[in-house]
Design a protein around this nucleic acid. Structure first.
Lengths: 353, 353
DNA sequence: TTGAAAGCGGTACCAT
DNA sequence: ATGGTACCGCTTTCAA
């Protein structure tokens, strides 16, 4: 219906100049209508807005970015999307950014045959206004790139999820160590004395190791004997949750063989806990009657209608939104200092412990 | 260590011009080293490459996009990241794109208070080389935008997951209808005669409705009586999986009340199946002894170490990679015709049916 | 309140 | 094999 009529080449995008011609103004005025409507006389503004609508004009963000030196792009690099670990965080981040007129560039390192450096390089080429990293995965080459990028805070960085001891810049998340402590202490308070731990403790998975360290410390403090740990090598990060379920099953079998008297198992993740519970059922072991099981993550299926798992809940979406907030604040010139935000976690007691 | 030394302002990025100066060549030669290395004499190329490394030069993609009219960006708009429905598809898509030098721009419509149109508009502003849509969610305003964008195939579009009857352009996925048929027929072959269906059949969730339609058709064909359907209103698309688990539990309760004699339940999704199985356990109903349960999706926890759920597996990652392939082929000028790729699905028999 | 000119950092195209 | 020049579409800056 409403069609410009000129520009018959078909595949082209409408430019600001074309809008300007149609509205009988200069391109600058069109630009102002878009960015600072108040500085344009209402009558003019209206004509321009009509031209924009009629032509279906959508401004070219790349051109805008080049001229204004603001990409309005935030890049998030996470290890994986699987297992819904980061899903809610990414969703929250994306939603908050979009509300502020920014877009989310997503990179996952999971299947990446290419190095983390290649990903980072590609992403930095986009000149993002912010960089979100799921911490603890920086290879040497990547670290060098990162340092160049953040030199003088050219690109603000937020490390999410696990709070790093020495943050690159800002950080939003929680302490896996504290969470590991909290759940272990909680189990101890419940009266369990022989608490085992099943988790992925491979060389790369330093988050799991932090949770485990918390577990070990509480055991020592409360005189609950030496740790009963079953740690698989794992694939680091957050390998497929399906694999974790199997590890949980295998882990419980191993634990029961070595420590047949144990009365509780703290699992490093909900999928692991799922596997452990399945294995317990297979052996006729009542949960929590004979054996209590606790998880970590509060995944979708952990609720009362599902596993009814006692676990630790991480405020994933809030981490995402808070990350967006910090990035935008920093960009706006407020918040010049690096900040570390601990959003904590929540113990959720259900029926397995 | 290796630092350019000039350009002391701190927050700036190294430009191609600076690299050129350092290497003693023109910017064009630097550009060639990056894009068509073969057309540069090895000695020159080496000098340029050294300059690039020493300066830590990362080309500005926005400038490149503007000049070349190629953003090397593919935008994917999905309803949600939760429940790991699209996670593997997005991961596969992103990985395949990156291998070809493209980046993934992600948009989710889930929490979006803004309309789908706003999202689409923001994304089109980036002039993506391709658009990936989880089908069936186009509002009128969005559809108009889409049509403008795809007019003359300016932006190739791939609709994923559910194969649309009238695709906008290309499509990669499977038929929910066929999948619904297949699982129902499979249950019938197994000897089940009174098969119920629990699913989300709200106004928005036309995918679930397609599966249900397949179920209904097979029932009729095989003379298995009228459908025994419990359909919740749902939130359309793929609302939180946690909610689905509860729906599964509630659904089974409702089904058993209305049709106490039923011997199998086909659930519209794995989370629903999870809830149904939980509810069955609560009632002392043996699965599959007293009641068979089948799901849809083959989520992480559906495996043998977990639910051991009989379900339908969708090749999520392959959908992502195939989507990338189509987009890149089309861009390369091959594949001028719209294509629809049916990647099918797989029946996975485990222990619940 | 509006416009003209000069880039932003690359690439296409045509010379050399 | 290499370089010069003219843009890509927008914003910044300054002038009117």
């Amino acid at each position: 219906m409403a069609d410009g009529g000129n520009n018959g080449d078909g595949a082209g995008w409408v430019t600001m100049g074309e809008v300007a011609v149609r509205a009988g103004v200069s391109p600058m005025t069109v630009s102002r209508v878009l960015k600072e409507p108040d500085r344009v006389r209402p009558a003019t503004r209206e004509r321009v807005e009509r031209a924009i609508a009629e032509l279906g004009y959508v401004p070219d963000a790349a051109a805008g970015a080049l001229a204004s030196r603001q990409s309005r792009l935030v890049a998030a690099l996470v290890s994986t999307l699987a297992g819904s670990i980061f899903a809610s965080t990414i969703a929250g981040l994306g939603a908050a950014l979009r509300e502020a007129g920014h877009e989310l560039l997503l990179g996952t390192t999971e299947y990446s045959s290419a190095s983390e450096e290649a990903l980072l390089r590609a992403v930095l080429g986009r000149r993002p206004d912010g960089l979100v990293l799921s911490a603890g995965q920086h290879t040497p080459a990547a670290r060098r790139l990162l340092e160049r990028a953040t030199r003088g805070l050219a690109v603000p960085v937020v490390e999410i999820w696990q709070l790093p001891e020495r943050p690159v810049d800002m950080a939003v998340g929680f302490s896996n160590f504290a969470a590991g402590r909290a759940m272990t202490a909680f189990l101890a308070d419940l009266g369990y004395r022989r608490i085992a731990f099943i988790g992925v403790l491979g060389p790369d998975d330093f988050r799991g190791k932090r949770r485990h360290a918390g577990y070990v410390e509480v055991l020592a403090e409360q005189g609950l004997g030496p740790p009963r740990t079953f740690g698989s090598g794992g694939f680091g990060g957050s390998a497929g949750a399906g694999a974790s379920v199997e590890e949980g099953a295998a882990g419980l079998a191993a634990v029961l063989e070595r420590w047949p008297d144990c009365d509780a198992v703290f699992c490093g993740s909900d999928p692991i806990a799922f596997g452990a519970i399945t294995e317990a059922a297979r052996r006729g072991i009542a949960v929590p009657g004979d054996l209590a099981v606790a998880g970590f993550g509060d995944f979708d299926y952990a609720g009362d209608a599902g596993l009814a798992l006692t676990t630790v809940r991480i405020p994933g979406e809030r981490i995402g939104r808070e990350t967006a907030r910090l990035l935008l604040e920093r960009k706006a010139g407020r918040l010049p200092e690096p900040v570390v935000v601990d959003l904590g976690f929540e113990l959720v007691r259900r029926r397995t412990a």
